[in-house]
Write a protein that binds this DNA or RNA. Structure first.
Length: 747
DNA sequence: TGAGACGCTGTTTTT
DNA sequence: CAGCGTCTCA
């Protein structure tokens, strides 16, 4: 955390000699296409690189190559998807060349935007000490605004803060306006359009007034500064003479515009990506963007990397089969020279518990055979899919680290704590002030608002707090808070010392508010302390908690530990052995994925997951899953697996059960069907089926249907757009939601 | 105006 | 099985 790749003195005087006499980087480890990409010097370059095709290696070598040509490290910029990715690449580059590689600026778009906006943000009215807010902070602002605009009680079904923030963010990331978005995707909220627009307007003003930026603002504001200010654009563009963008398929239009502006004086941009691995459309990325690159940058050279060096042939055959079913044909077919290896193994577990036991058992076996835990990973679609497994691993004493899912900084008590820090960095941060005030006993939203108004009116918020005419019941609380803040402002204090002071003050509050589970939560505070110990700058700490939130490490007493990760967080990584769990329809793909684009993205997601494996790939699926209403239901195998040839993998556990199959009467997904037959009914017919299942208008009274758990039944009544009443032969009358129930028509 | 009880809903993925 | 929003009482 400490050594930022965007250091504070990020614009060093450029008086150093370039390293003209550095050793030339050996290119014997590269194939012809890779060499070509590495040796490319000026002008736009697009590298379309399949999974495991040595994309990272190519970038690493190119960094080293450029520096070897005498280009200064500070004139390079490496934009990656995570900070970890860029750190690792620059470390590898320094093994090739020397440690000057470590001076290359690298990190995420957001981290870069943060760095540049601290310096240039004043052009659009932001002070350099602005605070970055995360999603729940943003939702908090919506909450405050909702009540201050008295929109709260107004409607019975006013959209939640989450939905509102989703909409606002989506509009930004898709470069469209909120109204268009609403009519596109949220038509049912039409009656709230004006209220939502009002909220959006106040949300923007609130952030600006209090020196706050959300994730989208970082990008939007950077783009604006670069666009409107010629001098800034020149300066930045001159600073970053060579720009490299990794995972380009997951950038959105704003990010593309930023790259174009930053490269305005030289056009030296190298973009690397893979359209078949695009998995961030929910963030406004479109895999077609990568194809637009040549039109944004005329005379782009295009290089494809198609040889896979990562996986064995059986694994590659399966992953190729998965992606081949995609609606849209992608640009590459991967091949490998890695020989041998076993077919991927599909395990049919009875339920999530058995699935977890199977995996823990397998891992133990592999470990006994000498495979270190950190050569294995368990991947899943959603964070909570691993809960059962986490318990199982803990009981077996297998150390693991979980990535993705809930972040440490997202829990309420950590946010409480960080609010004190945020105020110290930016005393205009009303969101944090609000949070801190609400922690006081007998102070609620109304009182907090009044105090906030007084703080805002004053030049010295801390003084104003002390002198606020408090009511007797909570006067003591306010004075204590004022005293603590005063104490914290002492410039000689280190972040850890400040942590201790807040800790002492916060402890009683903490125990009062989280009385039911504060012992559990206090472990998180300990972990926060450890993290803070690595910092000497509060501002940096506060930035990082938003930009690179620390993962919740569940078991940390070992350096050799198993990785549990969401597929999204596993992007770009690889392991000897990979387990993909919860491969049941409704879990992977997630139940809310709609036919069409979303469904296709789920498929690419599975493709990304499976291509992480080098030697061994295990797929598991629970046949029975528990739904929220604690009912068990049969879950079909993920259609992405059901639709590919059974000969590509081996099965164990209970045998396949055709009764729970997807295609029902057509049984189009039986494994025996020849390749040609299946091709014609690929994704398209699957999607149709899915659509049909969700639309009650296609069902009539008297229609016979089957349900995977309840069996055969007759439609008795269509009670709504998506609800029907069915009388089942064996289970009687049920009301079913077509969003959840998997009904199929039968003759 | 704040605190606490109660019922509802809904549950990706990330910077 | 939450976390959230709404409702009621002090």
């Amino acid at each position: 955390m400490q050594n930022s790749l965007f250091p504070e003195n990020s614009f060093p005087a450029q008086d150093r000699q370039g390293s003209k006499n550095k050793p030339t980087v050996s290119k014997q480890d590269l194939n012809r296409s890779q060499q070509e990409a590495v040796a490319h010097l000026d002008g736009p370059l697009l590298v379309v690189a399949g999974a495991g095709s040595g994309k990272t290696r190519t970038l690493v070598y190119r960094v080293a190559h450029l520096l070897g040509q005498g280009i200064l490290p500070e004139n390079l910029l490496l934009l990656t998807f995570t900070r970890r990715a860029s750190q690792e690449m620059l470390l590898r580059a320094s093994h090739l060349l020397d440690e000057s590689c470590q001076d290359v600026a690298g990190g995420t778009f957001h981290a870069m935007a943060n760095m540049l906006l601290r310096r240039y943000g004043y052009h659009i009215g932001y002070a350099p000490n602005f605070t970055i807010i995360d999603r729940s902070d943003a939702e908090g602002i919506i909450n405050i605004l909702k009540s201050s605009l008295s929109l709260a009680g107004a409607g019975k079904r006013f959209p939640t803060k989450r939905v509102i923030i989703n909409m606002i963010s989506k509009a930004v990331n898709r470069s469209t306006d909120l109204e268009t978005l609403l009519y596109d995707e949220y038509e049912h909220l039409e009656e709230f359009l004006n209220s939502i627009l009002l909220l959006q307007d106040h949300y923007e003003k609130f952030k600006f007034a209090h020196g706050l930026m959300d994730y989208d603002d970082l990008l939007v504001n950077l783009k604006q500064v670069l666009k409107e200010n010629d001098q800034v654009r020149q300066e930045v563009s001159q600073r970053f003479q060579y720009i490299m963008v990794d995972e380009y398929q997951d950038t959105n239009a704003i990010q593309a515009a930023i790259v174009r502006l930053m490269a305005s004086t030289h056009n030296n941009v190298m973009a690397v990506g893979d359209d078949s691995q695009s998995i961030y459309s929910f963030r406004g990325a479109d895999f077609r963007n990568i194809m637009d690159f040549p039109s944004i940058f005329p005379n782009t050279r295009i290089i494809k990397l198609e040889e896979n060096y990562r996986s064995t042939q059986p694994i590659l055959s399966m992953t190729n089969a998965i992606i081949e079913k995609a609606d849209e044909k992608y640009t590459k077919t991967l091949f490998t020279k890695v020989e041998g290896g076993n077919k991927p193994e599909l395990y049919n577990a009875a339920d999530a518990g058995e699935e977890a036991r199977y995996i823990a058992g397998r891992i133990t076996e592999l470990q006994k055979d000498g495979l270190p835990l950190n050569e294995m990973a368990v991947l899943f679609r959603s964070g909570f899919h691993s809960y059962k497994l986490e318990i199982e691993l803990a009981s077996k004493g297998i150390p693991f680290e979980k990535r993705g899912g809930l972040k440490l900084t997202e829990s309420a008590h950590i946010k409480d704590f960080l609010s004190y820090f945020r105020i110290l960095v930016n005393d205009q941060d009303n969101l944090s002030w609000n949070r801190v005030l609400l922690l006081l006993d007998k102070v609620g939203p109304k009182t907090a608002q009044k105090i906030l108004a007084a703080l805002k009116a004053s030049e010295e918020p801390f003084e104003a707090l002390k002198e606020y005419p408090a009511a007797p019941v909570w006067r003591k609380g306010v004075l204590e808070l004022a005293a603590v803040m005063q104490k914290l402002k002492d410039p000689v204090l280190t972040p850890v010392e400040q942590f201790e002071i807040i800790s002492e003050y916060y402890q009683p509050i903490f125990q009062r508010i989280y009385y039911d589970d504060y012992p559990k939560r206090s472990r998180d505070l300990e972990q926060l302390r450890t993290i803070i110990a690595g910092y000497d700058s509060l501002a940096k700490l506060v930035d990082d908690t938003a930009l690179e939130p620390p993962e919740t490490i569940v078991v940390e007493d070992s350096t050799d530990r198993l990785i549990l990760s969401t597929v999204h967080s596993a992007k770009g990584l690889e392991w000897d052995t990979v387990f993909i769990i919860s491969l049941a329809e409704g879990k992977f793909p997630v139940s809310q994925a709609l036919p069409g684009a979303q469904w296709e993205e789920e498929r690419r997601l599975l493709y990304v997951a499976a291509t992480r494996a080098k030697k061994r790939l295990y797929l598991t699926y629970p046949r029975e899953i528990m739904s929220v209403d604690r009912q068990f239901s049969r879950a079909p195998l993920s259609p992405f697996l059901a639709e590919i040839s059974h000969s590509l993998y081996t099965s164990s556990g209970r045998a396949h059960n055709q009764a729970v199959g997807y295609g029902g009467g057509s049984s189009g997904y039986s494994f025996s069907m020849g390749n040609r037959g299946r091709r014609s009914m690929g994704a398209a017919s699957l999607n149709q089926n899915k659509k049909q299942l969700k639309d009650a208008s296609s069902l009539d009274q008297g229609q016979a249907v089957t349900h995977p758990f309840f069996g055969r039944g007759i439609i008795d009544k269509v009670t709504g757009d998506r609800t029907v009443e069915v009388v089942f032969d064996r289970h009687g009358r049920k009301t079913l939601h077509l969003d959840y129930a998997k009904l199929e028509k039968i003759k």
